Simulated assay, not measured.
Amino acid sequence: MNLLVAPDLTWFRGRLQEGLGVRLRDGRVASVGPLGTDTPDLRVHLLMPGATDLQVNGGGGVLFNADPSLEGIAAIRAAHRGLGTHAILPTVITDAPEVLEAAAAAVIAAWGTTGIAGIHIEGPHIAPERRGTHDARHIRPLDSRTLAVLERLRAAGIPVLLTLAPERADPALLARAAGLGVVLSAGHSSATAEQAQAAFAHGVTMVTHLFNAMPPLHHRDPGLAAAAILSDAWIGLIPDGIHVNWAMLRLALAARPRPDRCFIVSDAMPTVGGPDAFTLYGRRIEVRDRRLVNAEGALAGAHVDMLTGMARLHLQGGVPLESCIAMAMDTPRAAMGLPPLEVAPGTSAGSLAVLDEALGFAGWLDRLT
């Protein structure tokens, strides 16, 4: 099969470009170049590689903590793929050590599956006062049992992201984790600005969902949030318009010395691509007015997928589309040391997402041709 696709906009060589033609042969990109006077077989609005999501708690009715298995990962992956996300880090949140060990074993078993890019371990080594919806019963300092899990994962070649409160971690254990090649991220933390700066100098390279589960910005007590914004660290943000006000998000982007080191995550729960309620730690969590909340009305994760969040970031948040696409695709991969995804010769059409004029996901290119 030999087809010529003409997108209005193509993500090509790290930026949006107009007037390109993408030729497909046998389900892969054969060439990319100026369309010229050629007549295309298919016109689409926006063509880009699918998103990469570094924080996926669940999807399709499945919570990774509740089903830390190969089947659970497959269901979560399928739900997010159906919404335009190409690669995910299944995310296990604070729980019993046995749950973390089962989650790690499941990711090892799934390794090599298209779209599984590693694992995100969010907790249990967090600050109790900043736990959010995490279960306080399972919070504990970083310990040798978790180090053993990290060693198994890294021995299997799996990228690992570990969210913790750096102010509560033994520096020697932090150094061991960093030495394994684990990406350390400050989150669910009460770190002062000074503690955060020290952490950034000693192996912590990322911040998990900026502004959420950390002290708010204060003019006499800047805390982790200010230290993160002013650092070179990679910063994750939840772009649903609920977890972070758009003005605060734009403020963070504008103040960064490296604005190209901000990325978005979904922080998705099982309601994404699934039913509108699920159980977490034995408590009902449900969608109310686009917000995912517990019985008290407190936020409990997010009800958004990556491309919807990317569209909101642009259309409601006022961030340029080119920046939004990079934050959904290139930057999270760079933060984890993953190779970039590109519209380039050899790329599978099944990894290229098509978006419509409203920036809604229209499907994967291989299904539209």
Rank of each mutant, 00 (worst) to 15 (best):
M306P: 02
I235C: 12
A225Q: 08
T91L: 13
A252W: 14
G350C: 07
L3W: 14
P128Y: 07
L83C: 01
L292P: 01
L217Y: 11
L230I: 04
T308D: 09
A191N: 07
D232A: 10
R256Q: 09
D95T: 02
L315K: 09
G179F: 10
L315Q: 08
A334E: 13
R291E: 08
A177Q: 11
T279A: 11
A353N: 05
V5T: 15
V32H: 10
A198N: 13
G36A: 12
A51G: 14
L24V: 12
H243R: 04
S185L: 13
S144H: 06
L292Q: 06
G181L: 12
A78K: 06
R130M: 07
F64E: 00
A105R: 14
L142R: 06
S231A: 07
E296M: 07
V207L: 05
W234K: 04
V62S: 01
R130Y: 08
A233T: 05
T91Y: 14
G157I: 05
I229R: 15
V293K: 05
E167N: 08
A172W: 14
L184K: 03
I238N: 01
G112L: 10
L3D: 11
L16D: 12
M1V: 09
E18G: 07
R81L: 02
L46M: 13
E18C: 11
R367A: 05
P68G: 07
H219P: 05
G223S: 04
L174Y: 13
E296T: 04
G273T: 00
L153S: 09
R288D: 03
A30E: 14
L249K: 06
G36P: 09
A252P: 02
V354L: 09
P216E: 08
V293I: 13
G223L: 01
V44Y: 06
P40R: 09
L83M: 03
V160H: 14
S31G: 07
L292F: 04
L174Q: 12
D240S: 00
T347V: 11
L368E: 08
I88Y: 10
L173K: 14
S231Q: 10
L150I: 09
L20F: 10
A268L: 04
Q55M: 11
V244L: 12
V272C: 15
D143G: 08
M310I: 02
L224R: 04
Q197D: 15
G273P: 00
A172Y: 10
L173P: 06
R152I: 00
M327I: 03
